[in-house]
Amino acid sequence: MIVLPTAVRETILERAREGDPDEICGVLGGEYEPDGESRVRSQYPAENVAATPRTRYEIDPEDQLAIFDRLEDRGEEIVGFYHSHPRGPPRPSATDAAQAAWPDRSYVIVSLEPFEVGSWRWQADGTDGEFERERVVVD
């Protein structure tokens, strides 16, 4: 389960609307529990540097490291990541699964059409893995 504060949810939704038709992305910080409830405290927006930002997202590695440093400075852990699907379903695509690299972390996806917020945890076993849907609690 992931607990997402209303203010963070609204900020991500606004970014998704403003970024349309491109996908937006960022990092979620807070309290991470690998087998239980993770609590988001903040979101860290990142520029989508994918070659095809309308259908893919990619966080610049240097930007990602800077965000990780900010998280650490604030005493937060990496809860997971978020991105939008402006015209797609709020579930991970095959590309999302192929690029997932953080086992047990949450991947929050915002769909604008239809409007929905979903979250999945990446469950990896060696080089293979799959997304498992997790409950989103808005707090």
Rank of each mutant, 00 (worst) to 15 (best):
P89V: 10
E77F: 03
R70H: 05
D60W: 04
R17V: 14
A98S: 15
P21F: 09
D20Q: 12
F68P: 06
E14A: 02
Y82C: 01
E72Y: 07
I24A: 06
P53V: 09
Q99M: 08
I59A: 10
A46T: 04
A16K: 00
W102L: 06
E10V: 13
A100S: 08
T52I: 11
G88F: 12
I59D: 07
V8S: 03
A51V: 13
E31Q: 14
L71E: 07
R9L: 03
Q99K: 14
T95F: 11
V8P: 06
A101S: 15
R105K: 14
S106F: 08
Q64G: 10
L28Y: 06
G19E: 08
H83Y: 07
A66N: 11
F68L: 15
A94W: 03
Q99G: 10
I67F: 05
Y82M: 03
D63G: 08
F115I: 12
S119Q: 10
S42A: 15
G118R: 13
R41P: 02
W102C: 12
D96P: 10
Y107E: 05
Y82K: 04
Y57W: 15
A97G: 06
P45G: 11
V79H: 04
L28S: 04
W102G: 05
G36I: 06
R105N: 13
E116W: 08
Q99T: 14
A94M: 07
D63F: 02
E18Q: 15
G118Y: 00
V110T: 02
D69Q: 13
D104W: 12
P92D: 00
L13Y: 07
R56Q: 15
S38C: 03
G29C: 00
E77C: 02
R74V: 00
I24N: 00
S38R: 05
S42K: 11
D22L: 11
Q99Y: 07
E18N: 07
Q99E: 12
I109F: 05
V79N: 01
D35C: 09
D22M: 02
T6P: 02
P86G: 01
E113F: 13
I78A: 06
I24Y: 03
E10C: 07
A7P: 00
L13E: 08
D20W: 11
A50K: 07
I12C: 09
D73S: 09
G29P: 00
H83V: 13
P53R: 14
P103N: 10
C25V: 14
S42H: 05
Y44W: 15
W120P: 01
I78T: 11
L71D: 08
S38Y: 11
E33V: 09
R105Q: 07
V79P: 01
E23P: 00
R87M: 09
S119K: 12
E37F: 02
E58Q: 15
P92G: 09
E14T: 15
G26V: 00
